[in-house]
Simulated assay, not measured.
Amino acid sequence: MLNKRTARTTHDELQASGASRYEIGVFYRAALSQQIWASQREMADALGVSTSGVSRFLALANIPVEVVEALGSPNDLTARVGELLLGALKLSGKSTLVRRAIDAKRLGYKETNELIEYIVSDRIPQQNVGKIRVRLARDKKSLRVELPQLLRLVPHLSRLEEWLSASITSFEVSMLSQVAVSAMLTREARKSKPDGIVRSAESRRP
């Protein structure tokens, strides 16, 4: 149970630890709900912060916890992101926003811009695959694959492994087929070459 002394101590610890706006807003809401201070202005004066700051942080605390979890961390709840989410919360309601956040997390969206587009605008994000690089590892026995959006694939590593195995096998079969065709053509060319040499030599005789 908070009292004015413990509330001040907790507030100082939150600020010293670099707590997010959302986490501080949740603390402000708890202090007011427990009637540690009678108003936002009284709390702001007691904690040495501005009334407008208290108001902004309290607004962020209204964002459902499911939405914050979908973002990955309260620290990702910047002023801009918070403003967008609060607007969507007012327009669409809590249940709709929570449903979109749960769906976004289940679908594997990781980037903040993608999450916000899906949760706030209810649109499918246009994802940029980016350039994939494959390099030979230092041990000369394995390959290193560099992906710009690796986090998207982490929940699907087992499927990715199966796909890579099948794709590499198919690629190797294709390469072996090409080698076999090239060897066959070279062999045929070699068989026909002696006759051509003989005719060429005869044509040069006086």
Rank of each mutant, 00 (worst) to 15 (best):
W163F: 13
K141Y: 04
H156C: 08
R106Q: 14
R144S: 05
A61I: 03
S95R: 13
A183H: 08
L84T: 05
I132G: 03
L115P: 13
K90P: 04
K105A: 15
K141C: 10
L143N: 04
A59P: 05
V145Q: 00
S73G: 09
R133E: 11
P64V: 08
K105F: 11
R138V: 10
E111T: 04
Y109R: 07
A101F: 08
E146H: 07
I102R: 14
E161M: 07
L107G: 10
L77D: 03
A59N: 06
S174M: 01
L151S: 13
L71C: 14
E161K: 14
L91Q: 15
V120F: 13
L185Y: 06
T169W: 01
T169P: 00
A166T: 06
E172V: 11
S121G: 09
N128F: 09
Y118T: 07
L143P: 02
Q178W: 02
L58A: 01
E83N: 13
I168N: 00
E117Y: 03
N128G: 13
K131P: 06
L176I: 01
S177E: 08
F171M: 09
L143Y: 04
D76Y: 10
A183R: 08
V129L: 13
Y118S: 02
L91S: 15
P74D: 07
V145D: 06
I168Q: 02
E172P: 00
E146A: 02
M175W: 06
A79H: 15
L91A: 15
T96H: 10
Q127Y: 09
G87N: 03
R100F: 01
L85H: 04
R135P: 03
S174L: 10
R138D: 14
M184R: 15
E117K: 09
Q127K: 14
L160T: 03
L58Y: 07
Q149M: 06
Q127H: 06
V129S: 11
R80L: 07
S92I: 12
K105L: 05
Y109H: 07
L86Y: 00
I63A: 01
E83G: 12
S142P: 00
L107W: 08
G93N: 12
S95E: 14
T112A: 07
D103N: 12
K110Y: 07
L164W: 09
L85N: 05
L143W: 01
Q149E: 03
L71D: 12
